[in-house]
């Protein structure tokens, strides 16, 4: 008669024999690449401030430049390599947001310009907007209620 483990025992056994991600190595890489991307952002921020733009305008311009860089590196097939190396270090910065918009747009071009690029562009980034915007409305309403 075949000996079969229970599902619980099997799950525990699998956790034991499956190699773990190299968290320490991955975290260090994420720290350095993420930090470096932020330094690049700071450089653009300072440059725009020096040109005489105010804080808000500089910050918007910096976003645009960083997103342009993220999309460009995605189009040139470089951002996926960066992501493989840096993990969250290139996912979490705004360039990663740009990558998550550009990559499905490029991938789904084969399904057409409307239902392919148009519809699939927010496959991954859509939830970020849904939750981000909804939360900001809630926070805004609370702010209103506290003030009045």
């Amino acid at each position: 008669m075949q000996h079969v483990m229970t599902k619980d025992d099997y799950r525990k056994y699998v956790d034991k024999v499956s190699p773990d991600s190299k968290t320490l190595r991955n975290t260090l890489r994420a720290f350095f690449v993420g930090g470096l991307i932020c330094v690049i952002g700071q450089f653009f921020m300072n440059s725009f401030r020096q040109m005489g733009f105010d804080q808000d305008v500089s910050s918007s311009l910096t976003s645009i430049v960083m997103i342009f860089l993220g999309v460009s590196l995605t189009a040139m097939n470089i951002y996926d390599d960066l992501g493989r190396f840096a993990g969250a270090g290139s996912i979490v910065p705004i360039t990663g947001f740009a990558n998550s918009v550009a990559s499905p747009a490029i991938e789904y071009k084969s399904e057409g310009y409307v239902l392919g690029i148009g519809a699939r562009m927010f496959l991954i980034a859509g939830p970020v907007l849904v939750y981000g915007i909804s939360m900001s409305i809630i926070v805004g309403i609370i702010h209103y209620l506290i003030k009045h």
Binding site: S21, T74, S90, Y108
Partner: peptide
């Protein structure tokens, strides 16, 4: 990848398994 995971150019990491 396109069907089961993510677009090819997405910068994601795979676990060792």
């Amino acid at each position: 990848e396109k069907q089961f995971r993510f677009p090819l150019e997405l910068g994601s990491q795979r676990p060792p398994t």
